[in-house]
């Protein structure tokens, strides 16, 4: 019902994060209009993420609502030193989505380690709705993903999309737990490098 859809913004976008942080401060002061504004800014990104994880529109909408409500109730728990508001928000949302996936798996409704590969992610083609900086970051991370050895990518995919624990990944792949831990750590380190470079680059 809100006719103006917000532009996507990215965690490293400090200007955008300053605006988000201001909204969080207003939420701490019980200003509900700030919650509405934060929703307008991040609903689309959050919905896209949880929808991609859950593959169910009703559940994704529930998670979006639960996430923003938690953000409202726990606004004072946001710590700027631990990352951007969007990081905080999307982390809450992803955690809630993974909780649902894990609950389904416990009820045997979800296949063990359902296939949701990184190959499903967006191509590096620029999206007119995003800023140039966002496109650059996406391009770098996608390139890093492509460079990952298959076994590291597999471990990250099972953790990222299915929320499998390292032990569960070890069971699913038939690899020793130590090997899984090492692959996960190395894969994440390789992925975070372009992000770090990207953050330092424009300065």
């Amino acid at each position: 019902m809100n006719p103006s859809e917000p532009q996507l913004s990215y965690p490293h976008d400090t200007g955008s994060n300053a605006e988000d942080a201001a909204l969080i401060r207003r939420m701490c002061d019980a200003d509900e209009t700030a919650l509405g504004a934060l929703y307008d800014r991040w609903m689309r990104s959050l919905y896209s993420l949880v929808m991609h994880l859950l593959k169910d529109a009703d559940e994704a909408e529930d998670v979006v609502e639960e996430t923003f409500w938690q953000a409202w109730r726990k606004a004072s728990a946001y710590e700027p030193s631990r990352g951007a508001v969007s990081t905080w928000l999307l982390t809450i949302g992803r955690r809630k989505a993974l909780d649902r996936i894990r609950a389904k798996r416990r009820r045997k409704e979800e296949p063990f380690g359902q296939d949701r590969p990184f190959a499903d992610l967006r191509s590096a083609e620029p999206d007119p709705s995003e800023n140039a900086e966002g496109f650059e970051l996406r391009r770098h991370v996608l390139a890093a993903l492509k460079e990952l050895p298959a076994e590291q990518r597999e471990v990250l995919e099972l953790g990222y999309f299915s929320g499998l624990s390292q032990t569960e990944i070890a069971d699913a792949t038939g690899q020793p737990l130590g090997t899984v831990k090492t692959r996960m750590r190395l894969g994440m380190q390789k992925l975070r490098e372009p992000l770090s470079m990207h953050r330092q680059g424009p300065e």
Binding site: M1, N2, Y39, M43, F68, L121, R122, V141, Y160, L195
Partner: peptide, 24 residues
Amino acid sequence: ATVVALGELVPSQQMNRGRGAGIR
């Protein structure tokens, strides 16, 4: 932040406007 950046890479999906407005 990297995990969140991965989340930004998922295909953009549009929530039904009416339902999105209802949640808001």
